[in-house]
Amino acid sequence: MATFNLNINGKTQTVDVDPSTPILWVLRDHLNLVGTKYGCGIAQCGACTVHLDGSATRSCMLPVSSVGNSKITTIEGLSENGDHPVQKAWLEVDVPQCGYCQAGQIMTASALLEKNPNPNDEEIEMAMNGNICRCGTYLRIRKAVKLAASKAS
């Protein structure tokens, strides 16, 4: 066990955990931030996506000991009132079915738009390809990303 000071959603959080513990489980088990989901544990499905210094990152294979002072943003910290353009677009398009993967989808989409505010269809599909949606809401995901881009620009 070791103590880590983490910068999460703009706040410093101190946790005492095994250094190998992935950020995913630090968030879920130790900080009660359960919006970031466990899906595969091997960075293949994207359900655990967070922003690490603004980049979409799989938190399930990110040991707590590796993040240092990097800024972590989770779905809970994406916006103050759940009104980030991507979140709003997700509601407007009514994307979710079961909804489990959607926090990860939103984190990937918001990181994409941060770097590329007007992605074309191909770029959206490429960026979102790492996030599995078992319910098959992919078309609505694309539509919501486009909508968010159009609203933000």
């Binding site: 989770t74 779905i75 809970e76 509601l91 009514d94 979710p96 909804g99 939103i106």
Partner: peptide, 16 residues
């Protein structure tokens, strides 16, 4: 979806 807001803001909803 009545849970839309909770889903998109990462609120506790699921068994996990």
């Amino acid at each position: 979806n009545v849970d839309g807001k909770k889903i998109t803001t990462g609120k506790p909803l699921y068994g996990i």
